[in-house]
Measured scan of single mutants.
Amino acid sequence: TFELKGKVGKVVKIAEDHYLVEVEGDKWIAYSDEKLSLGDRVMVVDVDGLKLKVKRIP
């Protein structure tokens, strides 16, 4: 999972307290300090167990 840091993915689902992002064909639970929208491109900035911390990228 640490090899996911720096990888780019996209938001595929928005849940009440987390996001579902697809990175390299796999779906992961993710969270972010900013509000994300469906389809946003994101970069993995940290890995916390099986959850990814992501940030939006242009």
Rank of each mutant, 00 (worst) to 15 (best):
D48R: 05
A30N: 01
G49F: 10
L4G: 03
V47S: 03
K55R: 10
A30C: 04
F2A: 09
V44C: 04
L36F: 15
R41E: 13
G25R: 15
E3G: 01
M43E: 15
D46G: 03
D33H: 13
V47N: 03
V54Y: 00
E16R: 12
K13L: 05
D46M: 05
Y19E: 06
I29L: 05
L52A: 03
V23N: 02
I57S: 10
Y31N: 07
E22T: 05
I57L: 13
V21H: 00
V42E: 00
I57M: 15
D33E: 12
V44W: 01
P58Y: 14
E34R: 07
K51S: 08
D48Q: 05
L50H: 13
G9T: 04
I57H: 07
G49W: 08
L52H: 02
V12H: 14
D26M: 05
V45M: 14
K5V: 11
E24W: 02
S32I: 14
G9A: 09
Y31R: 09
I14S: 11
E24I: 13
Y19G: 11
D26I: 04
E3Y: 05
W28I: 06
I57W: 14
R41A: 04
E16T: 10
F2L: 15
V23R: 01
V42F: 08
V45C: 04
V42W: 00
P58L: 07
E22L: 03
S37C: 04
K7F: 02
L38I: 11
S37K: 14
T1L: 05
S32W: 08
K5C: 06
D26W: 08
L38R: 09
F2Y: 05
K55S: 15
G49V: 08
K35F: 07
G6R: 00
L20A: 10
G49T: 12
A15Q: 05
V21K: 00
I14R: 09
K53R: 12
S32Y: 07
I29W: 11
V21R: 00
V47I: 07
A30L: 01
S32T: 03
V21M: 08
G39L: 08
D17T: 05
E34T: 04
Y31L: 11
M43L: 11
M43I: 15
V11F: 01
V23P: 00
L20D: 12
R56F: 14
H18F: 05
V11E: 00
E22A: 08
E16I: 07
V12R: 10
L38V: 09
K35I: 03
K27N: 03
H18L: 12
K10Q: 06
G9C: 03
M43R: 03
V42A: 12
E24L: 08
A30K: 00
A15K: 09
K51W: 07
K55M: 15
K35R: 10
D48M: 06
L4T: 03
K7Y: 02
V12Q: 13
L20R: 11
K35N: 15
M43P: 01
V45H: 08
S32G: 08
D48S: 06
E34A: 07
K13N: 09
E22W: 02
D17P: 07
K53E: 13
A15F: 08
G49E: 11
K51I: 09
S37I: 08
D46C: 03
I14M: 12
H18V: 11
K5Q: 07
V12G: 12
D17V: 13
Y31I: 06
K10C: 06
W28G: 02
I14T: 11
E3D: 04
D46R: 02
L20S: 11
K27A: 04
D48N: 14
Y31K: 14
K10W: 11
D46F: 03
V44M: 02
D26S: 12
A15N: 11
K5A: 11
G6S: 01
Y19S: 10
K10F: 12
G49H: 13
K51F: 10
D40E: 11
L20Q: 09
K27F: 10
S37N: 12
I14W: 13
A30M: 07
D40R: 04
V23C: 04
K13A: 14
K55V: 15
L4S: 02
I14G: 09
L50E: 08
L20E: 08
D26K: 14
K27P: 07
K35H: 05
V45T: 14
V42M: 12
K5H: 15
K7T: 02
R56A: 06
R56L: 09
V42Y: 01
A15L: 09
D48I: 05
K35L: 13
F2E: 13
K5I: 13
V47G: 05
K27L: 03
G25N: 12
I57R: 06
K7D: 02
K55N: 10
V44G: 01
G39E: 14
D26L: 15
K51D: 10
V8Y: 05
G25E: 10
D17S: 10
K10R: 12
K10Y: 12
R56T: 14
V54H: 00
L4C: 02
G39N: 10
V11I: 09
K35Y: 15
E34V: 08
R41N: 13
K27V: 03
G25K: 08
I14V: 10
V47Q: 12
E24P: 02
M43G: 04
D46H: 04
K55G: 15
S32Q: 14
E24F: 05
V8R: 05
V12K: 07
D48P: 03
P58Q: 11
E34H: 06
E16A: 06
K53H: 15
K55Y: 07
L36K: 01
F2Q: 13
I14D: 07
D33W: 11
A30R: 00
E24G: 11
A15T: 10
E34F: 09
V47K: 04
G6Q: 01
H18P: 02
K55E: 13
A30Q: 00
L20M: 09
K27T: 05
V21A: 13
V21C: 04
L50V: 09
A30E: 00
L36A: 06
E24K: 09
V47F: 14
V23E: 01
K53Y: 13
I57Y: 10
E3A: 01
G39K: 07
L52I: 04
I29A: 15
K13G: 06
K13W: 05
Y31S: 10
L4H: 01
V8C: 04
V47T: 06
